[in-house]
Computed example of a mutant assay.
Amino acid sequence: MKDGKDGKGWMRRQAAQIVGLLPEDDDEALQLLEMARAMLIQTASPDAGNRDRNVIRLLSEGSAAKEAEND
Rank of each mutant, 00 (worst) to 15 (best):
L22E: 06
R53S: 11
P23Q: 01
E69K: 09
G9L: 05
G7N: 04
P23H: 02
E69G: 04
M35Q: 13
A36D: 05
L59W: 05
D27W: 10
R57G: 03
S60W: 04
R12F: 13
D6Y: 05
K2Y: 07
D47W: 12
K8Y: 06
M35I: 08
L22P: 05
S60Y: 04
D47T: 10
W10M: 08
P46Q: 13
N70H: 08
A44M: 14
L21E: 07
Q17N: 07
Q42I: 05
P23F: 08
A44V: 01
E67T: 13
A64K: 13
M1C: 14
S45G: 07
L33M: 15
E28Y: 11
Q31I: 01
A65H: 15
E67C: 02
Q31G: 04
E34C: 01
K5F: 11
K5H: 06
R51Q: 13
L21Y: 03
A65T: 13
K8Q: 14
A16C: 03
W10N: 14
A29D: 08
K66T: 15
V55R: 07
G9D: 08
A15L: 11
D3M: 06
R57Q: 15
P46M: 10
P23C: 10
A44E: 15
Q31L: 06
V55N: 02
E28F: 07
I56T: 14
L33H: 10
L30Y: 04
Q14N: 04
S45Q: 06
K66D: 13
L40E: 06
A64T: 12
A44C: 06
I18S: 06
V19P: 04
Q14A: 09
G4Y: 00
L21H: 03
Q17C: 02
N70M: 15
L33E: 12
P46L: 09
E34I: 05
N50K: 01
A36K: 08
Q17S: 04
A38H: 13
G7W: 02
D27I: 09
D6V: 11
L22Y: 10
A36N: 12
I56C: 03
D25P: 02
D6W: 11
L22M: 12
A15T: 05
A64R: 15
R37T: 12
D71K: 12
V55F: 00
Q31F: 05
L32I: 02
D25V: 13
E61A: 05
I56Y: 03
D47E: 12
N50T: 03
S45W: 04
I41E: 14
G9N: 02
L59P: 00
A38N: 09
